[in-house]
């Protein structure tokens, strides 16, 4: 019978951990985004400004923006993974609700929305 753990396993685990940590650092060191795009079935349905506190609903997914962070407040799906995904605010972060086919992504810096509004 095969061994429980071999050197190859060890190397594999280390490589996977290094790759995933690098990925995590990449996501976490990103700057806060300005806008978020909500898609249903891959089609853009709404672009939210993170500066505004809003609540929108698509396909049974209630998306809330508060204090520059977005989270899923309520969803009609069964697994509620989207609700437990927590708040996102950094460029490249996202939340998906696969059962309701809804996705939310924080847009990168290249949006030409101004830094602030006067008036």
């Amino acid at each position: 019978m095969k061994k429980l753990i071999t050197k190859k396993d060890f190397v594999l685990v280390i490589i996977v951990l290094v790759v995933s940590l690098a990925g995590l650092i990449l996501v976490n060191s990103a700057d806060k985004g300005k806008t978020a795009t909500i898609k249903v079935d891959g089609e853009v349905v709404e672009t939210l400004s993170l500066n505004e506190d809003t609540l929108v609903e698509f396909n049974g997914v209630v998306v809330t923006c508060e204090n520059g962070e977005i989270y899923v407040k309520e969803s009609t799906c069964t697994d509620k993974v989207c609700m437990r995904s927590g708040e996102i605010s950094k460029s490249g972060e996202g939340i998906i609700c696969a059962p309701n086919r809804v996705s939310i992504e924080i847009d990168g810096k290249n949006t030409d929305l101004p830094d602030a509004m006067t008036g």
Binding site: V16, V19, S20, L24, K39, D41, I88, I96, A98
Partner: peptide, 22 residues
């Protein structure tokens, strides 16, 4: 998931899923 939502937001889940897999 990617097929269903067709969004690159999925990629953000990858690192955490790799750690979970370990």
């Amino acid at each position: 998931s990617f097929f269903l939502v067709q969004s690159s937001a999925i990629i953000g889940y990858a690192p955490i899923m790799l750690i979970t897999a370990v």
